[in-house]
Write a protein that binds this DNA or RNA. Structure first.
Lengths: 235, 235
DNA sequence: GCCGTGAAACTTGTATACTAGTACATGTGG
DNA sequence: CCACATGTACTAGTATACAAGTTTCACGGC
């Protein structure tokens, strides 16, 4: 007797996908990419979730072709693990990978801070962002601070004239954010400290202290390490 | 009267593609990706070369599907520029992008050197590579040195336990290498200096001088800047 | 001669059918 | 009861047909 889909774990996937809205007047690929990526990062798709191409495509009422493109990109970022002829699942949480992501981000952003200190930076673009951060930190509005923080770092990268560096950072930042959003608890109250870190980095940049700016930024990014397991290998 | 392909610039493309061998027993996507990537980096596909999906697919006797996957990856690395509904061409030479690639690589590799200096490193894995480099530098065998250099840096990344960092470096390194291979002339005799740079980095690592190791590695990678236009913007 | 119009020959994007490979469950022989 | 074939229902990889958009060039009106 043929068994057709015991509804084992497909059900919740359809639920998590039901609110994806595809604008058929634009390219589908990038849209479904963003939709899946957001759901992986905020853990609506827990690690191990099977993302069968046929199932997801049917749920979103699209064909497999643009979906495959999205999955391929996500696999390139390490957010999805594709086992040929077997399955494609959301990548498991990997503390080593998160630590590595923090390492890479710290390296690049420290270099950005160093360059800004060496070349000088026009802080006018940062003022409104800093104001927003101060307010969000005082109100302990985490999501507001989160977005302002993103803009702060992105703006620094653009001021240093390394836009592609920011693109790279975004790809590794996905792993950091996924971890961050997984254990929301350990976050409360950190906004204030992050805000002060930003001020310290800017102080060094203003004074032309290249090594200091790099070190401050490195420490700032590395402070994310406190959330992840200290230094233990994976079991 | 219908005009069927005036053979304007398709001809040389077929020539440059005639020696791509596809192993049908393995996945086609990664193979065609590597084939195209190699040809872009060594400038067999000059900037601006149109890589029409239909044409390339027919030349290689494959379908558009795996080819699209390869092109999408190359576009993600910035080696191909895809204009939707128009064309896909090999990305133009972009000095700003090359400088940025060097910046990113220097940032990450400096951090790798710093970490190795802090944690200590087992140099036994590096000894044979260094020996090979010394020999290649003495003989001025550039390609041999090139490959040994690649292994040297990759091994450092693995010793620092950041394998994904090496993957990122590879993607930005493509732009550096493409530039390097374009103006081969400015390279002769550099092997000796690069070899000495490596020794200096290792010396700092051995002595546990973290800041020194990072600075040495940064300067070493940044020496590639001497080949590219000094600091001028693109015209 | 010049300019607007439109059809045709491209391009990439999307949908779907088919291929080939894996895993698991089921049944069979020991 | 267990080991082992075997078939079935999946998976991702590939090929191909079709759709939608862009560029180009020829043609006709002015």
């Amino acid at each position: 007797m043929p068994r057709l889909k015991p509804d084992r774990d497909t059900f919740d996937l359809g639920a998590a996908l039901q609110d994806v809205e595809i604008d058929r007047s634009r390219s589908i690929g990038p849209q479904i990419y963003e939709a899946l990526r957001a759901r992986i990062i905020d853990n609506r798709f827990p690690p191990g979730t099977a993302l069968s191409e046929s199932v997801v495509a049917r749920c979103c009422d699209i064909s497999r072709t643009p979906l495959r493109a999205a999955i391929q990109d996500l696999a390139g970022e390490g957010l999805i693990v594709v086992r040929p002829q077997v399955d494609s699942v959301v990548a498991p949480h990997d503390e080593a990978r998160v630590r590595e992501a923090i390492f890479i981000r710290a390296a690049i952003e420290a270099a950005v801070a160093r360059r800004l200190a060496e070349r000088g930076a026009d802080e006018s673009r940062l003022a409104p962002i800093l104001a927003e951060q101060e307010q969000a930190a005082a109100a302990d509005d985490y999501m507001a601070f989160f977005h302002a923080d993103e803009r702060f770092h992105r703006t620094l990268a653009h001021m240093a004239e390394v836009p592609n560096a920011w693109h790279l950072i975004q790809s590794v930042k996905a792993h950091i954010d996924r971890q961050r959003l997984r254990l929301m608890s350990s976050i409360t109250g950190r906004s204030q400290r992050a805000y002060e870190d930003h001020l310290n980095v800017l102080k060094c940049i203003r004074e032309g202290d290249a090594s200091g700016a790099a070190a401050q930024m490195r420490d700032h990014v590395n402070s994310a390490l406190e959330s992840v397991g200290s230094d233990g290998k994976l079991p």
